[in-house]
Amino acid sequence: MDNNLRREIILDNYQNPDNRGLIEDDSYLKVNTNSESCIDNLDFMMKIEDGVVKDIRFDGEACAISTSASSIMTRSLIGKKVEEVREILVNYQNMINEKDYDSEVLGELNVYDEICKQPNRKNCALLPSVAVDKMLGELGNEK
């Protein structure tokens, strides 16, 4: 992908993120991500119905990478089945961690395919996937 385009997409999602802003609703799963290695601090909430992600929202203070990744990630996951979500997360995390991955399933999330060149930003890019992972974990516990 062209660097300028990549930057434009990330910046646009940072400055005008989708799905930002939390709502009062107890039917959502909730999680706070407050990573050890960086100062990003985002809250996430996700609603799953009949095995499908109906909604994901996030809010908080975070850098350009993690805010934009949260915007793109939430947009990419809404409407997907839980199994599809899991597949996307695994591939996304593999991409960030420089392991083999399938770029086909990642769509727009491919804009972060070069983040590994900046090791100090990996956790920023991973933040939303860690959050969704945690919420899916909670889902597992409830069953």
Binding site: I39, D40, A62, C63, A64, T67, Q118, N120, R121, C124
Partner: peptide, 21 residues
Amino acid sequence: VFAQDTSVFLNHYKIAVRAGN
């Protein structure tokens, strides 16, 4: 600009500062 983005930016000039609370 989020503080951490500024500190990462400064790192490109080999300037070490801290972002955070």
